[in-house]
């Protein structure tokens, strides 16, 4: 690169220094409150190891329930290799995948680089640190693994869709499964829907399904790939919106199941 010495003689310096007169701090503040609230709640919920299922409802924080004692469990019991010093919670076995997907998501990177790490806290506003490495070195170079988390996130959409279908199957007095619908069924149906709108607008998926191609008409399955790329692009335009809606949706789904399981909320059954 050519040499360029910036003479910032005309500008303010230091953390938060700016000539901006709008409420530039409001966005980062709201974002940090939203993100930290979710992180605190989800961490607390993940370590509870209880009240994550109520009848046909299973909290998405604990899905897939790899180890457990209920009808939702893939394997009954708890793993023998689980460390004794750590209380068992099935959520800890699965939450790393959707958590990693959101942690490395291009939208959330923007959100927390700005609101938490303040690099920069807002556009044209002074930063707290002079040093900067970007995503060139460890640990942030690991953000390039986002595509692998995206593949896992797609699998999770399938698992949560299966949970949504199961949420309509209630065990009757005769012990058999009967089709029905409660408020929880709607909550657990909206959850994978919102997650799907977020996940299928992912930048890495957009690249995978066709974005990497310069010439669709010269490629194998070019027309199909162009259609897939176009569809992902439509969702990608509102990636931020779906990121927040799905974050709220998955958090509320856990709260709903937890409250019903604890007996604080009564699940209204429509039929």
């Amino acid at each position: 690169m050519p040499d360029m010495t910036t003479q910032a003689v005309a500008h303010q310096h230091g953390f938060g220094a700016t000539a901006r007169r709008d409420l530039w701090w409001l966005g980062p503040l709201a974002t940090s409150i939203g993100l930290l609230s979710f992180v605190v709640y989800s961490t607390w919920a993940a370590f509870q190891g209880a009240y994550y299922e109520a009848g046909p409802y299973l909290s998405p924080f604990y899905s897939p329930l790899i180890f457990g004692t209920s009808e939702h469990a893939w394997i009954h019991g708890t793993p023998g290799w689980w460390p004794t010093w750590l209380p068992f919670s099935a959520a800890l076995l699965v939450l790393w995948a959707p958590g990693g997907f959101r942690l490395t998501c291009y939208y959330y990177r923007k959100a927390y680089y700005r609101s938490i790490w303040m690099d920069p806290v807002a556009c044209a506003v002074g930063e707290p640190r002079k040093s900067y490495w970007g995503e060139n070195t460890l640990p942030l170079i690991l953000m390039n693994a986002h595509r692998y988390f995206a593949y896992l996130a797609v699998i999770f959409i399938g698992v949560l869709t299966y949970d949504a279908i199961k949420s309509y199957l209630f065990t009757g007095a005769d012990g058999a499964k009967h089709f029905g619908m409660g408020v929880g069924s709607i909550v657990l149906t909206l959850n994978p829907l919102f997650l799907g709108l977020y996940t299928f607008g992912c930048h890495s998926l957009r690249h995978l399904v066709g974005g990497k191609k310069d010439c669709f008409s010269c490629s194998s399955f070019g027309e199909a790939r162009f259609k897939m790329w176009s569809a992902v692009s439509v969702l990608n335009r509102n990636h931020q919106l779906w990121a927040w809606v799905s974050l709220f949706g998955v958090g509320f789904s856990d709260i709903y199941v937890r409250m019903v399981a604890m007996g604080h909320w009564h699940d209204v059954r429509f039929f």
Binding site: M1, Y106, R109, K110, Y113, R114, D119, P120, C123, A124, Y132, W133, G134, E135, N136, L140, I141
Partner: peptide, 15 residues
Amino acid sequence: DGGIGFCNITKCCTE
């Protein structure tokens, strides 16, 4: 040379 890894996608350019 382009150093695209330095970009931490905070979208100020888009704004």
